[in-house]
Write a protein that binds this DNA or RNA. Structure first.
Length: 300
DNA sequence: TACCCGTGGGT
DNA sequence: TACCCAAGGGT
């Protein structure tokens, strides 16, 4: 971290708001969960967008909303159907959590997505970011929406750093809170996210397209490189995650229960394979069927 | 807190 | 090509 979190001078603050909002009016993507920003639409999209890019979410989201237009319709189906419909979005536990959240919404909230922060946070799979996003995008609330895009934009424009810290800091939250405008808070949230996603990107920022390049402290400082603690690279080859993914892929693509011998064929290390299979069963992503078959939970 | 949890596209 | 990274949450 190179610079302080000193607030932007008031003239810059006003420009920050005005220029980002004007840019958003001109360039916002026409995304289906914006076009129909019902609470359930927003909630489904936010679950899918957790660590997954928009382009990959789009087709799965569309099919999901056609099949399950309300929480009650999702809750009425076996969890395995949700996992199958999740397809290759990754982190399939999110499908389970979305199903569980839908069930809780039916049981505790009469089938309607709740609108208070505490009620949202009590739902499975809803953390600080997702609760704020639903408050903001579905209900027009004045929430502090801090996702990876917003964090990066504020790190650069306000703090002069290339990237934010690994975890949200108190100072960061303070900056974000102070920046939420009195009016148009939900548009501000969407606009700052959009700016981070389209222009102020992690790798190759398009500063020539940026509406606030002239007040950006990172740019003014000459684009100093990130100097915080190293980010641990995500290992992949040979990990349990790869093994679990391979196993889930077989079960998703099969119409019904799969013999263990078929699963044996997709991962050579027997000990690791059994450990991962046990983990998937413990996570309720997979269900044993009889002695030597496995399936997605709830049926076939 | 640090680590676990998938998948695929961009650079 | 080999990384890096993506609208995070749970433990």
């Amino acid at each position: 971290m190179t610079t302080s979190n000193a607030p932007l001078p008031l003239p810059d603050l006003a420009r920050f708001h005005e220029d980002v909002l004007a840019w958003f009016d001109d360039t916002a993507r026409d995304l289906p969960w914006r076009r129909d920003a019902s609470p359930w639409s927003v909630m489904v999209s936010e679950f899918m967008l957790q660590q997954t890019p928009v382009s990959r979410v789009l087709p799965v989201y569309t099919a999901w909303m056609e099949r399950w237009p309300t929480p009650a319709e999702l809750a009425a189906e076996p969890t395995g159907e949700a996992v199958r419909a999740w397809g290759r979005l990754g982190y399939p536990r999110r499908a389970l959590r979305l199903h569980a959240a839908a069930t809780a919404i039916v049981e505790r909230h009469g089938g309607e997505v709740p609108r208070t922060r505490d009620e949202l946070l009590a739902l499975p799979g809803v953390g600080d970011y997702t609760a704020a996003a639903i408050e903001s995008f579905a209900f027009g609330g004045r929430a502090v929406v801090l996702d990876t895009n917003v964090r990066r934009v504020f790190a650069r424009v306000v703090s002069g750093d290339q990237l934010p810290a690994n975890a949200v800091t108190a100072a960061e939250r303070q900056v974000a809170t102070a920046l939420v405008p009195i009016q148009d808070a939900h548009r501000w949230a969407a606009a700052t996210m959009e700016l981070g996603a389209l222009v102020c990107t992690a790798r190759s920022p398009r500063c020539e397209q940026c509406p606030v390049a002239e007040i950006c402290r990172w740019r003014a400082a000459g684009f100093p490189a990130y100097d915080g603690p190293a980010r641990r690279a995500q290992a992949w080859e040979g990990t349990d995650r790869q093994c679990r993914g391979r196993l889930m892929g077989v079960l998703r693509d099969a119409p019904g229960p799969v013999p263990r011998t078929v699963l044996d064929a997709v991962w050579p290390d027997a000990a690791q394979r059994e450990r991962c299979l046990d983990g998937l069963v413990a996570d309720r992503l997979v269900e044993p069927v009889g002695e030597d078959e496995l399936a997605l939970p709830g049926h076939a």
